[in-house]
Amino acid sequence: MKKLSQLQVGKKGVIKEFTDLEMSLKLMEMGCLPGEEIVIERVAPLGDPIAINVSGYMLSLRKQEASTIILQ
């Protein structure tokens, strides 16, 4: 079971499911849906949050939030 928070910068992953229903609502509204490809674009200077590319735009989220996203 690989979480989004474990992905390295520059690597890709495909969303499989979420572990947190409340968080998933916000994430899905922002375009993070199961089946969607995500690229880790960069990590903030202090190691958290991270910036990801999803459906053509940049989204930033905290590592703890990224850890609720399970990748395929």
Binding site: E22, M23, K26, L27, M30, P49, A51, Y57, M58, L59, S60, L61, R62, E65
Partner: peptide, 11 residues
């Protein structure tokens, strides 16, 4: 309640 930080980084 818990806090979010899910935010768009505009170009």
């Amino acid at each position: 309640e818990r806090g979010y930080f899910i935010m768009e980084l505009p170009v």
